[in-house]
Write a protein that binds this DNA or RNA. Structure first.
Lengths: 142, 142
DNA sequence: TATTGTTATACTCTATAACTATA
DNA sequence: TATAGTTATAGAGTATAACAATA
């Protein structure tokens, strides 16, 4: 393993922790857990099944039931049965859930813009480009 | 808010989720939770008090007690009372904990190197540099 | 038979408040 | 009186296994 590999792991680790703190802050501002925010973000333009949600969130499908229950109790999401397969339930946001989801994403972008105010426009542009390439590399590597 | 702010939030959000999956994978490989890994990483070259640990981990001090108990039960950390203030307890890794911590950090760096194999050496170097600048900007913004 | 969502169970993390022993 | 760590409690996330309905 090269020196650069160690440096990459170190700096990405610290950045990951900082980003986690930022997301946790926003979630708490909206009285949600960050897992609930993650789930809500999966419903931006899709109506995933519970199994698809579990895979996207990296948890077991049995956990999704409870998380959805809690969001449904607050009127943010709604279960809808799949017409093609009556075993499957698809999850959609309610109007209230969609409105809240957009507020949350705006709050995240706003907070990031504030916290990165000391990063020059050039650096910010490069950071976006390189992060996109990094994501493409991750996708290619599987 | 500018278009670049939205792009930054989007790409950093996706990257954050990918990194989270990577860390979760490593933690599970070592039969630890990712929170326990975070705690262990705070002991690399320091013996923090429980209050300092709580601040670093972004949780309440009352939570630290249980997390430390579970790590101590596995022989990875040890409580040591502070000679200057008998209210304070400082946490240190055992030899076994130090060895495991190094294994974990090596595993993270190794896995990242594998997953980023499709990112060119140039891009990787730039990603390190820009991430370091981003962290400096975050620190400066408070 | 296999799969989908659910339930039950046990463990962990998280937040709050009350407690103790120091300072 | 203030602070550091602990305890008790309640809610939430996590993993496993067993289950009913459907395919």
């Amino acid at each position: 393993m090269s020196e650069a590999d160690w440096e990459l792991a170190t700096v990405l680790g610290v950045l990951h922790r900082e980003m986690g703190a930022i997301y946790a802050q926003v979630a708490r501002d909206f009285e949600l857990t960050w897992q609930q925010v993650e789930l809500l973000c999966q419903l931006n333009d899709a109506s995933p099944s519970f199994g698809e949600l579990a895979r996207a969130l990296g948890c077991d499908k049995s956990n999704v039931t409870g998380m959805v229950d809690r969001l449904a109790r607050r009127g943010l999401v709604r279960r809808e049965s799949d017409p093609h397969d009556r075993r499957v339930i698809r999850l959609t946001r309610t109007e209230q859930g969609a409105a809240l989801g957009e507020q949350i994403q705006a709050a995240i972008a706003e907070l990031l813009a504030q916290r990165f105010v000391n990063l020059s426009a050039d650096d910010r542009r490069h950071l976006i480009t390189l992060s996109q390439r990094a994501l493409a590399a991750l996708a290619a590597a599987g």
